[in-house]
Nucleic acid binder design. Structure first.
Lengths: 134, 134
DNA sequence: CTTCTTGCAAATAGTTTGCATATAG
DNA sequence: CTATATGCAAACTATTTGCAAGAAG
């Protein structure tokens, strides 16, 4: 591919992604970068985000809400979206074992080769669940 | 909401979705509808697709490839996208049981309320897997 | 110097919407 | 007749790209 050179903007984007537990869209990253780099352009943000996804330092989280969300955490975990407030959260599943062999199970009778999976949970987030109890 | 009236265009879209095992984008639906309705507009296609999603006769399948994909099959099943050719396929998992209680497992320590999940598998589809073996 | 990166602006892709006309009930 | 649906075009949102200037190695 291409040889990477250091850039302050890219560094800041990586740091920002790592500092968040939610999953910002490109636009949110852009708005936050402008605090430190008032002249940064959306193009730069998009270019860096897809570069980070390419080299595996971030992942894309596809949601059904128009925009792509980005996640700086490369460790395997699962995603949740609240169908009331739209928040995208990480999910720490305690009993990972039952998920481990999902790929094998799915591969039975498939004919191709299943390399991975992404699980998306939905429902009410803790905050909304609390508000609805009142 | 709104009271539905019959429309030949909507009927054709439903039939088309049901006839496919892949998961067409709005654009593909549009192109195919034009065979029967040369003057149909993209607006009509989009309006009907989101209407069908609303009333539960279709679902949106979010992919990381720019466009939303639509699925006419309301029965629960899982999705697969080939990371070589981009095809989106259905997956019939024989041993559903291990997936059944995923929601319960995920709900432990969550605090909110998990209502459902969607699992997306990726890898090589049967066709691509075959081509790569040569 | 040479290569990669940026900012800016223009271009593109996917989707939504306003409005006048057509169709279903 | 009244409400919903359609076609068309314009508007909008998210994302990508060409290019000249700037920074890294």
């Amino acid at each position: 591919m291409s040889n990477l050179k250091y850039s302050r903007q890219r560094k800041a984007i990586v740091d920002f992604l790592e500092s968040r537990t939610d999953h910002p869209t490109a636009d949110i990253v852009y708005i936050n970068m402008r605090k430190e780099f008032p002249k940064i352009s959306l193009g730069t943000v998009y270019r860096n985000l897809s570069l980070l996804v390419e080299i595996g330092e971030a992942i894309k989280v596809p949601c059904s809400d128009g925009a792509e969300h980005f996640d700086g955490c490369t460790l395997k975990h699962y995603h949740f979206q609240c169908n009331r407030c739209g928040a995208v959260l990480d999910l720490n599943i305690t009993d990972m074992d039952s998920i481990q062999d999902l790929n094998k199970i799915a591969n039975v009778n498939f004919g191709g080769n299943i390399e991975g999976n992404s699980i998306f949970f939905y429902g009410k987030c803790p905050k909304c669940a609390k508000e609805l109890k009142r």
